[in-house]
Design a protein around this nucleic acid. Sequence first.
DNA 1: AATAAATACTTTGTACTACAAAGTAAATAA
DNA 2: TTATTTACTTTGTAGTACAAAGTATTTATT
Lengths: 100, 100
Amino acid sequence: MKDFFSHINKAFENKVRLGVMSILMVNDWYDFNGFKELLGLTDGNLASHLAKLEKIEFITVKKEFVGKKTKTSYQATKEGKLAFKNHLQALETLIKGTKK
Amino acid sequence: MKDFFSHINKAFENKVRLGVMSILMVNDWYDFNGFKELLGLTDGNLASHLAKLEKIEFITVKKEFVGKKTKTSYQATKEGKLAFKNHLQALETLIKGTKK
DNA sequence: AATAAATACTTTGTACTACAAAGTAAATAA
DNA sequence: TTATTTACTTTGTAGTACAAAGTATTTATT
């Protein structure tokens, strides 16, 4: 693939990951159940997408007890935020700069 | 999937189709070889994505001779343009409207 | 003590997708 | 006649998305 796509990030081609990252751009921490409800996903599907974002270090995880219940929360990393911004920028460029 | 994603269009989750549609938003007609060069794709890959966009009626095809050579050109349909605009609008909303 | 419910997963299986590479057909050029 | 171009189609492989079911741990209910 070419220059044309150099900042279009494969990680953000999927709508679940796009949703997760969007949420984490404006919320410092967001928990598993929060994503699940807001995005309307099954546990497995959500978990697999979160795992992918974690693996490439675009998000980090925190586990804690709130009262007596477990809670797993996620935060975008610096690199994740940067990659997401670049992706959005690339989309804008793509849409605006292709007049022959 | 939820409301949250209602205008995120599966057709535009792929970067090739995103590129093709972006180009067709600002160029009335664009030909096969033009896409191939600009996007840096193999024939088969390009053809398959164009076929997908044609199947869902987001683009239309025109075949002609220019001099002695064949030329196949593509144009976005009204529905294609609308869907693409809605997709972009949805992305914007997604990115801006998720503060808890 | 036994059963049920919640949380945050993992595992499994299926259907679909992206892509390169090779093959095809029809026309033109050397 | 052989090579080249155009615009594909076919084939095969590796990867992806997703639901559903299963798991471990803890807490709540009977």
